[in-house]
Design a binder for these strands. Structure first.
Lengths: 135, 135
DNA sequence: CTTGACCCTATACCTTACTGTAAGGTTTAA
DNA sequence: TTAAACCTTACAGTAAGGTATAGGGTCAAG
């Protein structure tokens, strides 16, 4: 089995070596084996695990949630249902954030549509709306 | 003119007193007048300005962007066009964030749809996808 | 005249996901 | 053999928007 140092692994997966130490500290990666002089040494499994982490992050999972997914993945007695539950919760969370952003965007678009873009800010309907007492 | 202390103003607008000092430090609020003993004293304008800040925040503006809007609002020579520009930039920014979240949600929904929710995690298609080498 | 509720400043801490730095040990290429 | 290029730990710093705390002064009620 070929084993590599932290810098090479980091380069392979496109991440900083510091991030790997950080993941180990958080428990996302198991403590690496060490050489006699204390260098971390990684096998092929580490790169696979790191790519899992990066893909899950790209899907919007926080590192804490990634840790939960990894724990389920590591446990052969864990249930597919649990993974599905975490995924569904994340979908709901993302949907909520989308809704909130849509509302913001709608509110801004309404203000923007009323603004001619001419004249001084004294007649600006956007600022007028922000200054309105109702809310 | 009735003037109130920081705690009452904070309560009126539903915000912490510490946040008000923080806003003053950032320049969002002008330095408050002080009593002989050093207490901050606020008039009616402060509450108006704070509500402006809170509404703008609720629309997704960062405090830095709020500061920009307030500077435009404060300057009688500023142009409505500039306010419109800031608003349009924010709309574009929010639209981008929505798109990114939509892509995440779609990715997760696809994974979730393939998962029966039965059995052990060894057969879980969500974990399998996260472990896939392509990406 | 004392107690409690305020207020002041300055500093530290919180979250998340890292990056950067210091001070030092190791390994590799010339 | 020596210099570059690694590696180690521990700690500090980043963004953003605050909150919490320490240590002190002030104000109103009883």
């Amino acid at each position: 089995m070929q084993s590599i140092t932290i810098g090479k692994l980091a380069k392979n997966v496109g991440i900083g070596a510091g991030a790997l130490r950080y993941y180990e500290q958080l428990g996302l990666l198991p403590p690496a084996q060490r050489t006699a002089s204390g260098y971390r040494v990684y096998g092929a499994a580490a790169a696979t695990r790191l790519r899992f982490i990066r893909r899950a992050q790209a899907l919007g999972f926080s590192l804490e949630e990634v840790a939960e997914l990894l724990a389920l993945s590591d446990n052969p007695r864990a249930r597919a249902r649990d993974v599905k539950r975490v995924t569904q919760a994340k979908i709901a969370d993302i949907a909520q954030r989308i809704d909130a952003l849509e509302r913001m965007k709608q509110g801004l678009a309404t203000l923007e549509a009323n603004c001619s873009g001419h004249g001084h800010t004294g007649e600006c309907p956007i600022l007028a709306a922000l200054n309105q007492e109702n809310s």
